[in-house]
Amino acid sequence: MNWLLVVCGAMVGAPLRYLTDRAVQARHDSVFPWGTFTVNVTGCLVLGLLTGAATHLQLLLGTGLCGALTTYSTFSYETLRLAETGARLQAALNVAASVAAGLAAAFAGAALAGM
Results as ranks from 00 to 15, higher is better:
residue 1 M to L: 12
residue 1 M to P: 09
residue 1 M to F: 10
residue 2 N to M: 12
residue 2 N to R: 13
residue 2 N to V: 09
residue 5 L to Q: 02
residue 5 L to S: 01
residue 7 V to G: 05
residue 7 V to Q: 02
residue 7 V to F: 13
residue 11 M to L: 15
residue 12 V to L: 15
residue 12 V to G: 01
residue 13 G to A: 00
residue 14 A to P: 00
residue 15 P to Y: 05
residue 18 Y to D: 08
residue 19 L to H: 15
residue 20 T to W: 08
residue 20 T to I: 08
residue 20 T to E: 05
residue 21 D to L: 09
residue 23 A to I: 03
residue 23 A to E: 12
residue 25 Q to F: 05
residue 26 A to V: 06
residue 26 A to F: 07
residue 26 A to L: 11
residue 26 A to G: 08
residue 27 R to Q: 10
residue 28 H to W: 15
residue 29 D to P: 05
residue 29 D to M: 07
residue 30 S to I: 05
residue 31 V to C: 12
residue 31 V to D: 12
residue 32 F to E: 04
residue 32 F to H: 09
residue 33 P to Y: 04
residue 34 W to Y: 15
residue 35 G to M: 07
residue 35 G to C: 00
residue 36 T to P: 07
residue 36 T to D: 08
residue 37 F to Q: 07
residue 38 T to Y: 07
residue 39 V to M: 02
residue 39 V to G: 03
residue 39 V to F: 00
residue 41 V to D: 01
residue 42 T to L: 15
residue 44 C to M: 10
residue 45 L to Q: 02
residue 45 L to I: 09
residue 45 L to T: 02
residue 45 L to W: 07
residue 46 V to W: 03
residue 47 L to Y: 06
residue 47 L to V: 14
residue 48 G to P: 02
residue 48 G to V: 01
residue 50 L to F: 04
residue 51 T to Y: 07
residue 51 T to D: 11
residue 53 A to D: 04
residue 56 H to G: 12
residue 59 L to G: 03
residue 62 G to F: 01
residue 62 G to I: 02
residue 63 T to Q: 02
residue 65 L to R: 01
residue 65 L to W: 04
residue 65 L to Y: 03
residue 66 C to H: 02
residue 66 C to A: 10
residue 66 C to S: 09
residue 67 G to F: 02
residue 69 L to F: 11
residue 70 T to A: 03
residue 70 T to G: 00
residue 71 T to W: 00
residue 71 T to M: 03
residue 72 Y to D: 10
residue 73 S to I: 08
residue 74 T to S: 15
residue 74 T to C: 04
residue 74 T to W: 06
residue 75 F to P: 01
residue 76 S to M: 12
residue 76 S to V: 09
residue 76 S to Q: 13
residue 77 Y to P: 05
residue 80 L to F: 13
residue 80 L to H: 13
residue 81 R to K: 14
residue 82 L to F: 06
residue 82 L to H: 04
residue 82 L to G: 01
residue 83 A to N: 11
residue 83 A to L: 13
residue 83 A to D: 11
residue 84 E to A: 14
residue 84 E to W: 11
residue 84 E to S: 13
residue 90 Q to R: 15
residue 91 A to Y: 07
residue 91 A to E: 10
residue 91 A to L: 03
residue 92 A to R: 14
residue 92 A to I: 13
residue 93 L to F: 11
residue 93 L to S: 10
residue 93 L to A: 15
residue 95 V to W: 11
residue 96 A to Q: 09
residue 97 A to V: 14
residue 97 A to E: 09
residue 98 S to M: 08
residue 98 S to P: 06
residue 100 A to D: 07
residue 100 A to W: 11
residue 102 G to M: 05
residue 103 L to M: 14
residue 103 L to K: 04
residue 105 A to C: 07
residue 105 A to Q: 02
residue 106 A to Y: 05
residue 107 F to E: 09
residue 107 F to T: 12
residue 109 G to Q: 00
residue 110 A to Q: 09
residue 111 A to W: 15
residue 111 A to L: 13
residue 112 L to R: 02
residue 113 A to P: 01
residue 113 A to H: 15
residue 114 G to H: 06
residue 114 G to C: 10
residue 115 M to F: 13
